[in-house]
Amino acid sequence: MARYGMVIDLNRCVGCQSCAVACKVENNVRFSTPEEASHGREIQWMQVLPVAEGEFPNVVETFIPVLCNHCENPSCVPVCPTGATYQSEATGIIGQVYTRCIGCRFCAVACPYMARYFNWSKPHWPEEMKARLNPDVSTRTKSVIEKCTFCSHRLPRAREQALSEGRKLRDGDYVTACMEACPTRAIVFGDLDDSNSRVAVLSRGHRAKRLREELGNEPKVFYLDQQGGWDVDNNDG
């Protein structure tokens, strides 16, 4: 049994959105149209939220990559009327069976992290791109909910590979596309139950926080605080 989780170091994150795009490529997430974007109907399993505080010139801005938190106590799973949304026992990952989803959007409303997205229309891939989407991940159609899966389609393959080499799954065998792409190594993914894994070590550190911890959802995405570092004397400038 494993319990997959992620640590994102906000001190390292430079808001480049590489993770967000790598996620789209890996998971065949549709791109939006200008019209959809203006209606807030973009699908972005992972997005980088800029959180700015203060006024000129004393502004602090943090970039927070936000994705499904794969909560231990998810709000989305109990409200799903069809069992399309589930919590995987073997991995702790919250998954979505698209063929079971009836598009009621209860889960999207229930999710405190706004991490679930509804397909308001058919995806608009031109033939040239559609033919070369990643065949490891199915494409979603109109009227189903989708969200980050922690790239769970990679897990069976990683297991097979390990098995074929006659060994157990190692830390780093199964990683997400966002982690792979991150240029600053801000994202670390792995098994929280493996106490020696990189992600487990980081998640235990004093800088590790989770979003909206007060809700008791027990998210499995941890954020390492942006470090203050230098005290800038604001009076002189």
Binding site: V77, P78, V79, C80, P81, G83
Partner: peptide, 20 residues
């Protein structure tokens, strides 16, 4: 989690859910 039974819709038991 093994494949879910359709009856186990958790704490919320609205009529709407039944309809769905």
């Amino acid at each position: 989690m093994s494949p879910r039974k359709l009856s186990s819709t958790g704490g919320i038991s609205l009529g709407a859910i039944a309809l769905f």
